[in-house]
Amino acid sequence: MSSRSGLAAILTLVFATALALGVAAPRAFAFYADHQLANPQQEARAERIMQGLRCPVCQDESIAESNADLAGDMRELVRKMVAAGDSDAQIRAYIVARYGQWILLKPRFELSTYALWLAPVGFLVVALVGIGFYFRRLRAAAAEIASKPLTADEKRRLDRWQAQNPENT
């Protein structure tokens, strides 16, 4: 009994200290972080842009999904820019200028990302060429063997096999 009330007292103290130190999450200012735009077309456009922007805090989530504070601020920013009439490209460029290409979940197709986009095609081509060479070599080997007459030993083994498997001859 006394140990439980002791624990409660400690927890109270911890929370009080946390509050006093201001460790609690910062105040939420951003209205449009969690409120949709009134115009459904604008909201759909904002939604599409937000899906494509990486949250700088939880780096494998888009700002549309993330609960991070900064993601909320960025949602507000995107919604306000959409409402102000900025184009999709303008909004993305604004954020890329500040956070870099890396902020785009789908990287642009440009000089620094050619390798990224073209590597899968490259691997496919290499694999197809490799398979082509493999079959060509197989066919060449088969043709070479077929062009030679059987040796005496091969002839004897073939005769024996045929005698044992008459249904296959």
């Binding site: 200012f29 900064l70 601020d73 920013l77 500040r98 956070y99």
Partner: peptide, 14 residues
Amino acid sequence: DETGRVGINWGVYG
């Protein structure tokens, strides 16, 4: 920077 908007302009992530 109460709203954090200038922070975003600096590209802060934490």
